[in-house]
Simulated assay, not measured.
Amino acid sequence: DSSLTAILSQLGNHKTSMDPAWVTQLQAETKVKKAKLDERLQQNASAQPMNHWTALSAIKPVLESNPDVILVNEGANTLDYTRDAVNMSLPRHRIDCATWAIMGMGMGSCIGAAMATGKSVVAVEGDSAFGFSGMEFSTICRFKLPVTVVIFNNGGIYNGIGVNMSNDGDPAPTTLDVHARFDKMGDAFGAQTYYVTNPADLKNALSEAIASKKPCLIDVQLAADSGKESGHIGYLNPASLQNITV
């Protein structure tokens, strides 16, 4: 209190201000970026096998037609692209993993959001991100929460199809299985599950899952080469470290 009182006493009548053209410039830039995004979604809407943009072209209209659904989102490409693609029209209806090293917040956030609000929750998760807290899906099922978990399965991150960067023969932590069937995990916990390989089935599955208000898991099969290094984090390494293997 004393610190804030001291700060306030020095502010006096000072008021913040902004460039009056700033909002107008943002609105103009938004129109340009939206047009590019719409073009990308349209170009990829029917790609087979699906990539991230194909899946999002199916997810976007479903979520935007259910504005009261709380969206939880984590991943690398899955996080970045969903942030770009899916618009939110109500406040406090989006929870994501922010920036850098906060993976694993997905399932806990779903549980908290559903318990606190009673509203339907949809989590859009990268397969690697889901792995950090995926077993908490069992809690969602035990409490019969209205949570739908959508997993984008492209076999993990960045190492190339089937490439194991470990030198001792054991799988590296980033070596995932592009053919992993996350829906079978949902079956084990008694959830309503879906395995989808095309955007039409994904759109139908998500619509049905939200309407059910039951624990649901949708395994979205993407191409193994879908995605790229998110945030180009490898570029931040010193040149001398670029070629070191683990």
Rank of each mutant, 00 (worst) to 15 (best):
M115D: 04
S3L: 11
K184N: 08
P171F: 09
T54S: 06
P67K: 12
V150K: 00
N198D: 15
Q43I: 05
I111A: 01
M18S: 14
A129T: 00
F137Q: 03
V122T: 07
W100R: 13
D187K: 11
N77Q: 05
I244P: 05
A209P: 02
H93L: 05
K214E: 07
Y158V: 12
F132N: 01
T99E: 06
S226A: 15
A28V: 06
A21G: 11
K15D: 02
T174M: 11
N198R: 14
V246M: 09
T245W: 04
N237W: 05
S120P: 09
S2T: 12
M115E: 09
I102D: 12
A188P: 03
F152D: 00
P215Q: 01
S207F: 02
V72N: 00
E229A: 13
S120F: 03
G104W: 00
M50Y: 07
P49R: 04
M135D: 04
S57I: 07
K34N: 14
I7Y: 07
Y235C: 06
W22V: 06
R40G: 02
I95Y: 11
T175P: 01
S166H: 08
S230H: 08
Q221Y: 11
G160I: 09
A85C: 15
A191Y: 00
N237C: 06
P173V: 04
N87H: 10
P171A: 06
F152T: 03
D96Q: 03
D177S: 15
S240Y: 09
G75R: 01
A172E: 06
D1A: 15
K144D: 14
F182L: 03
I102R: 13
Q25D: 13
G108N: 09
S207W: 00
V72E: 02
